[in-house]
Simulated assay, not measured.
Amino acid sequence: MQLTVSGLPVFIYTGGQSFAPAQPVVVLLHGAAHDHSVWNFQARHLARHGFSVLAPDLPGHGRSGGAPLASIEALADWLATLLDAAGVRRAAIAGHSMGSLVALQAAAQFPDRITQLILLGSVAPMPVAAPLLSAAHDDRAVAHAMINQWSYTFASQLGASAVPGISLMGLNRRLMERQGDSVLAIDLGACNAYENGLAAAAAVRCPTLLLCADRDQMTPRRAVKPLHEALAGVADGARMISIPRAGHAMLAEAPDAVGNAIRSFLTRR
């Protein structure tokens, strides 16, 4: 599906089903130098279980036009505009890594529009290692290698995959290579500069789920504690679920576990 948002084309994957705004809507936000395709498994799963899915390519990513937005706050504003363009008043929102910061900021900034919040591979603040920031500016191939090494478990690095015949690291490297030259550097810079995460978390009031991969090297579970504690105002407290045998790339390494956890949270009463 393609929409025009702020005068620019935005590509949105809907999980293989026609978008129906009258159904419960869930927005899926990708991370740095990625696009909607990282959510393919979960988008199809949710679309076949009664949800209308919006998995957009963020501005300047994938098949969406424009330049990448340079701050998390700007991306949260853009998300509200996207909902307007899709004719959606209220939606659940899930974000992975950089996308989780956008989701967090949007939930705090637009509390009447976000019904449920799901943060995957998220910490606040989300500092980016200086060597990775430097490589993102000066040598993308080196940056991609760093990201792959830190995002995937040892088993995946040896070739294990939830989908037989697919190299997860090769797929991720090619996905990052397809983005524009400056996309990764801009995205990582936005994550590194975002200082409002804990204040935003303190303002969140909708039901919230934290999904933490037990072998995540980029946003390890021990580093999630400040964010979890800052979400104290959420009714019944923010729930935290560990995804076993997965790293930061949990969407690819544990697609079923992630999809089931999201659907269970969205449908709980």
Results as ranks from 00 to 15, higher is better:
4 T>Y: 05
5 V>C: 12
9 P>H: 09
9 P>Q: 00
10 V>E: 06
10 V>H: 10
11 F>G: 13
11 F>E: 10
12 I>W: 05
14 T>Y: 10
16 G>A: 11
16 G>D: 11
19 F>N: 03
20 A>K: 10
22 A>W: 12
26 V>F: 01
27 V>K: 07
28 L>M: 05
31 G>P: 03
33 A>G: 10
39 W>Q: 03
46 L>M: 08
47 A>L: 04
49 H>P: 08
49 H>V: 04
49 H>M: 00
56 P>C: 10
64 S>G: 11
66 G>I: 05
67 A>L: 07
69 L>V: 05
77 D>N: 01
77 D>H: 05
78 W>T: 00
79 L>S: 00
79 L>R: 06
82 L>T: 01
85 A>F: 12
86 A>K: 12
86 A>E: 03
86 A>S: 08
91 A>M: 01
93 I>D: 01
95 G>T: 04
98 M>G: 07
99 G>F: 03
100 S>L: 11
105 Q>P: 01
106 A>R: 10
108 A>K: 12
108 A>F: 10
109 Q>A: 12
110 F>S: 05
115 T>H: 04
116 Q>H: 15
116 Q>T: 02
118 I>Q: 08
120 L>N: 01
125 P>F: 06
127 P>Y: 06
128 V>K: 00
132 L>V: 08
133 L>G: 00
137 H>A: 05
139 D>P: 01
140 R>M: 03
142 V>E: 07
143 A>G: 03
144 H>A: 08
147 I>R: 02
149 Q>H: 14
151 S>T: 10
152 Y>P: 09
152 Y>E: 07
159 G>D: 08
161 S>K: 14
161 S>C: 12
163 V>S: 11
163 V>L: 13
164 P>E: 15
164 P>F: 13
165 G>M: 07
170 G>D: 13
171 L>N: 08
173 R>Y: 15
174 R>W: 01
175 L>A: 14
176 M>N: 11
176 M>S: 11
180 G>F: 13
183 V>L: 10
184 L>G: 05
186 I>M: 04
188 L>I: 11
188 L>Q: 02
191 C>H: 14
193 A>L: 06
196 N>E: 14
200 A>N: 13
202 A>K: 11
203 A>P: 12
208 T>R: 15
210 L>P: 04
210 L>R: 04
211 L>H: 12
212 C>P: 06
213 A>G: 02
219 T>H: 14
223 A>L: 15
224 V>M: 11
224 V>F: 14
225 K>T: 09
226 P>F: 14
227 L>T: 06
229 E>G: 08
237 G>H: 01
237 G>T: 10
243 I>T: 00
247 G>Y: 00
248 H>I: 07
251 L>M: 12
252 A>F: 08
256 D>N: 15
257 A>Y: 02
263 R>P: 08
263 R>T: 15
